[in-house]
Nucleic acid binder design. Structure first.
Lengths: 162, 162
DNA sequence: TATTCAGTTCGTAACTACACGAACTAAAAT
DNA sequence: ATTTTAGTTCGTGTAGTTACGAACTGAATA
């Protein structure tokens, strides 16, 4: 595979991944920028490079980049004597990617609790079903910490063994 | 708390939960219907009851109910000699609620794999970061089955003991 | 056969989100 | 002091959603 071919496939894949992010509720431009930073070989893009590569306006890039930084997906670095911002993927600890799932689950647990508290009869099939769902979520949520620990243990042990 | 108070709080909560579903990407009317079926004491609502309770049009209800059935959140039952459909929450196995998370994660794993395959250099900080994320997701995905099993075991054992 | 019932489909109007370009800002260079 | 650089903010047009009412369908009833 030649370099040109690879780059062509990468640019194509930026669009694909961008579309997926869009379907998951992200705004189109934000999704494309995030995909760009993940897929391409260049690790840091300037504002103008992003605009040029994705053919979007400055304002669209500005708004999208602010959101991506707020969401903790993107950060920028700067260099002395250079006013440009160099945007790149924010490299968070891998297990942080479940934080959002966890927050959502905690909200759900709380909501179901409130629903159950308002029920006239806590033993109807619906109430029972909601209780089961809540239990499952609570169990799962408690397991997350353990899972994180065992991942770290496994990850470290491979560093020492072999 | 009187019954009227409880029902008032329930109706209020339908709106709150509906809004949350909306923020998670569900259509407004679908979110309200799902919330209605979760929160209220009545376990089965007819088409007309839903329309009346939420003050929506027949067409809006029709479209939303079709989507909720496709998404496996709602089902309806019928009774002989009664043409009405009685809509209610679909009571799936609790651990099914993670199926969507899992599917999304498998897609992500696949996508990151493709991204890495297209990288010129697999050892840059970005590539390393993506690899770690992928590993974490793979570990997590493998743990899900185990988690499900141990949930079932725990759930059953409490049925026999004490 | 006509009518009612229980929804579905379709066309439309109102609303919303998105991205654009133009105007603006703040800091640095000339 | 003026110009350039590197973005940000704002107002607007457009495209896409959403929900409505009216017309329709298909089954059951009269």
């Amino acid at each position: 595979m030649t370099t040109e071919e690879r780059v062509r496939l990468q640019k194509q894949f930026v669009e694909t991944i961008g579309l997926e992010y869009e379907k998951e509720g992200m705004q189109p431009v934000s999704g494309r920028i995030l995909a760009l930073l993940m897929v391409m070989d260049k690790e840091c893009f300037t504002f103008d490079e992003i605009i040029e590569e994705l053919e979007i306006s400055k304002s669209a890039a500005s708004v999208a980049l602010r959101m991506l930084q707020l969401r903790n997906n993107v950060e920028y670095i700067t260099f002395p004597g250079d006013r440009k911002r160099y945007f790149r993927l924010k490299r968070v600890e891998p297990y942080h990617i479940f934080e959002e799932t966890r927050r959502k689950m905690l909200r759900d647990i709380e909501n179901i609790g409130k629903i159950l508290a308002l029920k006239a009869n806590p033993d109807t099939p619906n109430s029972q079903f909601l209780k089961e769902i809540k239990q499952m979520m609570e169990f799962f949520n408690e397991s997350l910490d353990q899972l994180k620990e065992s991942y770290l243990k496994k990850h470290n042990s491979t560093n020492f063994s072999s």
